[in-house]
Design a protein around this nucleic acid. Structure first.
Length: 386
DNA sequence: AATACGGGGTG
DNA sequence: CACCCAGTATT
């Protein structure tokens, strides 16, 4: 029997081709009934699937939907994206987080225009070579848009697949990931494009597996009684569904205090700068801000800002305190009103600011990308001014 | 292998 | 508050 040629014992009963086949059918029947109506599912071109996949990375679907609609309206194809103004693109992306995604997207569009004649490449290696696209995203784009038989593995499917086979090894280890990638591929329906439609091929299977993870096979309190494939699920059989996937690395959160200064010129414009490459929020605009190791205290911050600008900056008392989180950091931002007395010598005439710094009105800032916290701060201070 | 990268949703 | 989310790139 074909099933005796087991790929991997870790697959448990899914090593049997008939069991896999039954699971696939039940999953796909469920998906036909239960699939959400997501905007990128209506016309799954490589471009739209690509944009949706990048936006969805580490981001909940509900958050993405309005961003996706605005994005496609403004940048309908690779060429439009390649020619986009970076600040406008970042402004559109504002609030989604992981801003490098937006910059990589634009860079990749330029590669597509220059090296692929403006047509999204359909070869796995070419897709993988694009900036911002890793193994998951390359497989997702080509399986979903082209029905290519390519496996995927991300947050949902790590959980779904590891439960299916009752995986007790920590899923953050490479060996475990390898098993799950292999399972992901083994589970895919056969690829005979002439016979297999997008409805029951790899396109549907990959989306169905993720959809199951999002709607049924959830991180906590999975809805096993509603699960179309519970009968094939080892975790459910053993009662392990709450503990799988097992993770070793626990996030260590770190509290951190950062400082910001509100500094206006005679025309009440705000002192801001565009963050340089290589730092957090690169390319976005922000008020003067620093934290450890630049500024371990408000006195350090005052000194740091003085040396940045030249002359002497004097900070007032804390004017706002804002809490926000950036990855593992839990940041308390202390905002101070500030005065700046430039060195006389540094101002030959007019008021040339040091490189990188600029005064902007609130209206100008409304067109520039800022971090969510920066935008919230601006809203607060302008609301007060009214 | 470990870390950086955002911000919001959820129990 | 801790964990999670259609991950990737860098160290």
């Amino acid at each position: 029997m074909e099933a005796s040629k087991v790929q991997r014992p870790e697959f448990q009963r899914l090593a049997d081709t008939r069991v896999r086949s039954r699971l696939r059918k039940q999953l796909l029947d469920w998906f036909t009934e239960s699939a959400r109506d997501l905007p990128w599912r209506r016309d799954p071109t490589p471009y739209k699937v690509w944009v949706s996949e990048i936006m969805c990375q580490q981001t909940q679907i509900a958050t993405v939907i309005p961003y996706f609609e605005r994005f496609i309206a403004k940048y309908p194809d690779e060429s439009a994206l390649a020619q986009s103004d970076e600040a406008e693109l970042m402004r559109l992306w504002e609030g989604l987080g992981y801003y490098r995604r937006a910059r990589s997207l634009r860079a990749a569009a330029q590669v597509i225009v220059e090296e692929h004649q403006g047509q999204f490449p359909l070869a796995f290696d070419a897709v993988l070579a694009l900036p911002g696209i890793g193994r998951y995203t390359a497989g997702a784009i080509l399986s979903i848009s082209q029905n290519q038989r390519l496996p995927i593995l991300e947050g949902n499917t790590i959980r779904v697949f590891s439960r299916w086979i009752g995986m007790r090894d920590p899923v953050d280890e490479k060996a475990t990931q390898d098993v799950l990638w292999q399972l992901s591929e083994t589970m895919l329906p056969a690829t005979k494009p002439s016979q297999v439609s997008r409805e029951i091929g790899p396109a549907a299977f990959n989306q169905a597996a993720m959809e199951l993870g999002a709607l049924v096979c959830t991180p906590r309190q999975p809805k096993c009684l509603l699960c179309p494939v519970a009968k094939q699920c080892e975790a459910y059989r053993m009662g392990w569904q709450e503990e799988i996937p097992i993770k070793l690395g626990k996030t260590k959160y770190e509290s951190r205090t950062e400082y910001a200064a509100l500094l206006q010129d005679a025309s009440k414009r705000w002192l801001v700068r565009q963050l340089p490459e290589g730092v957090r929020f690169a390319g976005m605009w922000d008020f003067p801000k620093a934290g450890p190791p630049q500024a371990n205290s408000v006195q350090h911050f005052e000194r740091w800002l003085s040396s940045e600008l030249g002359g002497h900056v004097r900070l007032g008392d804390v004017n706002h305190t804002m809490k926000h989180a950036v990855t593992k950091y839990r940041i308390t931002l202390q905002v101070h009103l500030a005065d700046w007395k430039p060195e006389q010598d540094s101002l030959p005439k007019g008021n040339p600011l040091p490189t990188g710094w600029k005064y902007c009105t609130a209206a100008q800032l409304s067109k520039l990308p800022m971090s969510t916290t920066g935008r919230r701060l601006l809203k607060r201070v302008t609301a007060r001014a009214d």
